[in-house]
């Protein structure tokens, strides 16, 4: 920026300030952050997300009871003042079980999302920026995988894996979910690629890598970020569903899906077995989906 421009900008800023306006930096992300702090839905969902992440890292903060020390004589006891969520079939304290269940869901949700987003980032950039053969190869392969509905593909693949713990379930979810994010990334790269500032950078002799990193990536990231936030919720719901169906995590893991599948067939006699893990899954998914919604509203200038 030349000195003249800086001077002019400062003059404009002073005038704006004098007129009572705001003179903060106005990047897309800065704007979005200001917008988000004022959005009550974002604040609520962010607090919930933080709560569940803390619960996953340090469940001891919420309960002093060991979820694996069970007393069969208390099997299926109803919720009471001392034991808020009652007891499960094995006579384990259900509150401790549900609190400890957050870890599997949060770990799978975040791990699958980060890895899928990383794959989508690389493949989307390659397909969108280079086009032609690379685009054709990546897009057609994505089409094949996309033709397999997410849940169905995961059911088939997981049903032939004998030992299933967090890494296996997360891996299978990544295998079937990368095409959607890759398509999102590819299309935002394509729309950023044709901008004048990219042509300007190229004329100035910038390398492909530099153009992608400095010019395209920052401008193409917003849609991926929005989808990734919602996606954490979708993955957590998918994990709970797969585990419920019997192709996800296995005992002795502690997970909400396993608790829900234990509740199936007992809803007549012991509705508390369904209610508490169900509420926790729903709240976690709700928090991430709501946060994604708020993020989209903040990042999309057309909606202002």
């Amino acid at each position: 920026m030349t000195d003249a421009q800086v001077n002019r900008d400062q003059a404009v800023a002073q005038e704006t300030a004098a007129a009572g306006g705001s003179v903060d930096s106005t990047s897309l992300w800065g704007d979005a952050w200001r917008e988000l702090r004022r959005n009550p839905f974002f604040v609520i969902s962010a607090l919930l997300v933080v709560l569940f992440i803390v619960m996953a890292i340090a469940p001891q903060l919420f309960t002093g009871t060991d979820p694996r020390s069970c007393d069969l004589s208390r099997s299926l006891e109803r919720p009471s003042g001392q034991h808020w969520f009652g007891f499960d079939l094995q006579g384990c304290d259900y509150y401790a079980r549900v609190i400890y269940g957050a870890r599997a869901s949060i770990v799978i949700g975040l791990a699958v999302t980060f890895l899928t987003a990383a794959i989508a980032l690389v493949l989307g950039l390659m397909a969108g920026y280079y086009g032609r053969l690379r685009d054709a190869l990546i897009s057609r392969f994505a089409d094949f995988v996309f033709a397999l509905p997410f849940l169905l593909g995961a059911i088939v693949f997981l049903s032939v894996i004998e030992r299933r713990a967090i890494p296996q379930v997360a891996g299978v979810l990544i295998v079937f979910s990368w095409p959607v994010m890759t398509r999102i990334m590819r299309s935002s790269v394509i729309s950023a690629k044709n901008a004048d500032y990219v042509a300007a950078a190229r004329v100035l002799g910038a390398s492909d890598v530099r153009i992608m990193r400095k010019h395209i990536l920052p401008n193409a990231l917003a849609p991926l970020m929005v989808y990734a936030t919602v996606f954490v919720g979708l993955v957590i719901a998918a994990e709970a569903s797969l585990t419920f169906l019997g192709v996800g995590l296995q005992l002795p893991s502690i997970s909400w899906g396993l608790q829900l599948s234990g509740a199936r067939g007992r809803i007549l006699t012991d509705p508390h077995l369904l209610f508490f893990p169900g509420m926790f899954v729903a709240l976690t998914v709700f928090a991430f989906v709501l946060m994604g919604d708020a993020l989209r509203d903040a990042l999309d200038p057309k909606l202002r």
Binding site: A240, I267, L274, A282
Partner: peptide, 18 residues
């Protein structure tokens, strides 16, 4: 719609059944 989208089908179906 915000609430419906955010509640997993699995949980909603079990609660609806009850």
């Amino acid at each position: 719609t915000t609430v419906l989208v955010a509640i997993p089908t699995l949980v909603l179906a079990m609660i609806g059944q009850v």
